[in-house]
Computed example of a mutant assay.
Amino acid sequence: MRALRATSNPFADLHHAETPFLLPNAWDHASAMAMAGKGFRAIGTTSLAVAAAVGLPDGASVTGDETLRLALILGSQPFLLSVDAESGFSEDPDEVGEFARQLVAVGAVGINLEDGLGSVDRHAAKIAAVKAAAPGLFVNARTDTYWLGAHGAHGAHGARDVRNGAETLSRLDAYQQAGADGVFVPGLTDAREIAALVARLDVPLNVLYSPTGPTVPQLGDLGVSRISLGSFLYRRAIGAALDALDEIREGREPGGRTPTYEDVQEMGADIADHV
């Protein structure tokens, strides 16, 4: 018997619209408010940016406090917030469930949990613990079969290639059974593999946008429900800053869009009320 999932809510409903649900990922209050100003009803966070901002590694379960602090800032804003929580910042399912409860308390409606190609049973237990502690929280269960490929299955030595549909489906089925509301396969870009996976799943499929992969309309035609941007916008922002530095140093006028000082001040006007 499959675990019960959250009842329908505005965030869950976005995964069942006629067009794919495009989720931009913010890294601070200003970036989130700028994205909300473009009409996005829901915004996610990106763990890479949270970690990079404080000089810590991503995916190492060391930024739980920083992640919760950002959720506190963004959770009361006029958009639906989904939080990238890496693998839950603990290997103890009960501790992951408690972290999820804290996210709900500050206004988050979704959580992204990655398996890092670790134990399937342990990740399923984390999902079940989150659903027990925070039943209304939308759990997006991520598997890294395509993202980490051969490098993550058994470490650098003796690794086996897990970039195949059977391994992916086996993991995702366990996560569905545990109560995941949606599943996420970053690194999956082949159209035929995407369509085949959609046909086999009982919950919405989330993929990570790739500039070299299918477009948003094409992903919609394949049956993808949610398209995340992950750290892409954050990395593009850094790239734009570096491009501007090069242009200024070379005596050229910087190109691209530059919000005014007042624009950015307005984006962060109410931050003092949430810290």
Rank of each mutant, 00 (worst) to 15 (best):
T46E: 05
V264E: 03
L205K: 09
E114V: 00
L219Q: 03
E167M: 14
P214R: 10
D65F: 09
Y209C: 09
I248K: 08
Q102Y: 09
P93Y: 11
A241G: 10
G64C: 13
H16L: 08
A129V: 00
W147T: 07
D84T: 11
V224D: 03
A60M: 14
A132T: 14
A105K: 13
H274G: 05
E247C: 12
G88P: 11
R163I: 10
V185K: 01
R249V: 01
D243N: 04
D144L: 04
R160V: 10
L137T: 12
I227Y: 07
A272K: 11
G97K: 05
L68Y: 07
E95M: 08
G97N: 06
I43E: 10
A195R: 12
R142H: 01
G118L: 11
D94Q: 14
S82P: 01
L172F: 10
A100R: 03
P217E: 11
P135V: 00
F184S: 04
D65Y: 10
P93Q: 10
P57S: 13
D115C: 12
V203T: 10
Q218L: 05
A174T: 06
A12E: 07
A195W: 01
V162R: 11
T7A: 15
G39H: 05
P259C: 03
E167H: 08
L4K: 15
L188C: 08
S170A: 15
I43V: 00
R142A: 01
G136N: 15
V185L: 08
P93T: 06
A150V: 11
E253V: 02
A195D: 10
D65W: 05
G110T: 00
G255T: 06
I73H: 05
D273P: 06
A125C: 06
G179Q: 03
A60Q: 14
G64R: 11
G251P: 03
V96W: 10
N140K: 04
Q102L: 15
S228E: 04
A150D: 01
G187Q: 02
G149C: 04
P93K: 13
S82R: 05
A51C: 04
H16S: 14
T19A: 09
G230H: 01
A42S: 15
E98P: 12
G107W: 06
L137K: 08
R69A: 15
L222Y: 03
R252G: 02
A6L: 13
A166G: 00
E266I: 12
E167A: 02
L103I: 01
D190W: 00
Y261Q: 09
L148R: 00
L197K: 04
D115E: 00
S61C: 14
A237V: 11
R2C: 01
L188R: 03
L201G: 00
V54S: 08
A32I: 04
F138T: 13
G187M: 10
V109W: 13
A42M: 07
V109D: 12
D28K: 11
I238S: 09
S210C: 06
V96N: 04
A124G: 06
V207A: 08
D144Y: 01
T258S: 14
A272Y: 14
A150G: 02
T189H: 08
R101E: 15
E193D: 15
K131P: 02
A241W: 13
T189Y: 03
T260C: 08
W147I: 12
H157T: 14
V216W: 10
P10A: 07
